[in-house]
């Protein structure tokens, strides 16, 4: 079955969405992500949508859902790499993704999550050797 890979980067999780989302895929991602957050005790989730050219209200709602679920599990969600055209479309659709943090790219997203983690507790370095699994 088709799955969206979830990469672990230290205390954060990285999800790169590169295919068209549909209901089942979104639900699978939600389930996978939830179990991974609890499994690793992750503090943050990065969702990279830089390769998405088209975003509809469904994906918008899915992103908001994931953010809320992660919030319950004490992890911050950052959506990174949104294309300008996608941003305009979402605004025109009236989806401003409240409660979802955003960053221009993964680097800035990690910095944002680090800052958030640091402000809530002890700063933890992202260990590269720990890397992706």
């Amino acid at each position: 079955m088709e799955r969206i890979p979830i990469l672990r980067m230290g205390q954060f999780l990285l999800v790169t969405i590169q295919v068209d989302m549909h209901d089942r895929l979104a639900l699978t991602l939600q389930e996978d992500l939830t179990s991974r957050i609890t499994e690793h005790g992750s503090r943050g989730v990065l969702i990279d949508i830089s390769s998405l050219e088209i975003v509809d209200s469904f994906i918008g709602r899915m992103l908001a859902n994931i953010a809320s679920i992660a919030r319950v599990l004490d992890a911050d969600t950052v959506v990174v790499g949104m294309q300008p055209a996608v941003a305009i479309t979402l605004v025109e659709l009236g989806l401003s993704l409240p409660g979802v943090r955003t960053a221009l790219n993964v680097e800035k997203g990690v910095a944002l999550l680090n800052a958030a983690v640091a402000s809530s507790g002890a700063m933890l370095e992202v260990d590269d050797a720990d890397g992706e699994d």
């Binding site: 949104m82 300008p84 996608v86 941003a87 979402l90 605004v91 025109e92 401003s96 955003t102």
Partner: peptide, 12 residues
């Protein structure tokens, strides 16, 4: 507000 929201979605 729309412009601000769109910029925020881009992380600015």
């Amino acid at each position: 507000i729309k412009t601000v929201t769109a910029a925020r979605l881009m992380g600015a």
